[in-house]
Amino acid sequence: MALGAVQLFGLISRHNQWLAARQATLAGNIANANTPGFKALDVEDFNQTLDTMGLSMATTQSAHMTSGATEAPVGVRQEDPWDVTHSGNSVSLEQELIKAGEVNRAYRLNTSIAKAFHRMLLTATKA
C-alpha cells in the first residue's frame, strides 16, 4: 500500500511538471498573440511524455540512488489553430485561456490528491 502511494506521489509530481511546462508554452503563445507569423504551440500529450520520462530508474543494489530530479523532456508541437489571421499568426486568445483553465483545474486536482494521500499516510504513522 505504501509503495503504491509513493508511486502515486511520483506520478503526481511528473504530471505537475508536465502541466507547468504546458503553462509556460501557453504563456509564450499569449505573449506572442500579436507577433506576425507566429505559430501557436502546445506540448505533447502526457501519456506520450510519460513513456519517455520513465517512472523510476532500475536499481541493482540497495546503495544505488533512485532517480532524483529527472529533467522532464516535454516535447512541443504545433497546435491545431482555431483561426489564422492575415499576418500568419495562429494564436487564439480564447483557446489559450481555455487551455490555461484546464491546466489550473488539473493542477488543483493533483495537489488535492497529494494532500489527501499525505494526510492518509500521516494518520497511519501517528496511530
Binding site: A31, E96, A100, N104
Partner: peptide, 18 residues
C-alpha cells in the same frame, strides 16, 4: 492582449501557491 497576459501571470502564481 494585456489582460490575457495578466491572466497568465495570475494563474501561474496560483499554481505556485497550490
Amino acid at each position: 492582449s494585456y489582460a490575457a497576459n495578466l491572466q497568465v501571470v495570475k494563474q501561474a502564481r496560483e499554481l505556485i501557491n497550490m
